[in-house]
Simulated scan of single mutants.
Amino acid sequence: MTRSALCALVILGLLCGTGAGAQSLNELRTRLQATLQRSLGRSMLGGALPHVDLRTGDVTRYYPTENHEIILQLGEVYVMCATLVTEDGREAPVDYYITQADGRFGVIRMEIDNRAPLQALRDAGRATRLE
């Protein structure tokens, strides 16, 4: 899809209604994926996503390798998951929490190699698969 076609799709979505209920599932998926790509583009340095471990102070450089198809919904928040890999080849799951305000989506939280909070939300029935 060309950049102008993607922009036209986003503008059309804004004109037709900005709530998730007013969008088809495919439009919503497209907007969430575009939001994630923009966020990654701004966060990556030298082709990697640097991440500080707040317990140790170590910085790990992660490289995106695979986006997962499943999108979870937690109220007005959507969760997209992917796999990252470190320089030494260790894989780590990443969960991107995305929400919408004023007709725009944005990533509001990212959890790298910390799946327990999302799993607890799923177990409690608060995070469900978007279908």
Rank of each mutant, 00 (worst) to 15 (best):
S43L: 13
P64W: 04
T128R: 07
D123Q: 08
Y96F: 15
L118T: 09
L84K: 03
Y63D: 07
E87H: 05
A20E: 12
G75K: 00
T99E: 08
D102M: 11
L32S: 05
H51Q: 09
P117K: 10
D113R: 07
A127T: 05
V10W: 14
A127S: 09
A34L: 08
Y96P: 07
I108P: 07
Y78S: 04
N114C: 13
A127I: 04
D58P: 01
A22N: 13
A101L: 06
A124M: 09
G89R: 13
M1V: 10
F105A: 06
C7F: 13
R29S: 10
L32G: 03
R3M: 06
V10K: 10
R104G: 13
L118V: 10
A34E: 14
V94R: 02
E87W: 02
L6S: 09
Y63K: 05
V94H: 02
T83K: 05
L74R: 10
G19W: 09
G21P: 00
F105K: 05
R109S: 13
D88W: 10
V77Q: 14
Q73Y: 01
E76N: 13
R109P: 01
I11L: 15
N26Y: 10
Q33Y: 07
G13M: 09
A127D: 03
G13H: 03
G103T: 00
D102I: 01
N26Q: 12
V85F: 01
V79Y: 00
L32N: 04
Y96R: 03
V85G: 00
Q73T: 13
A82I: 01
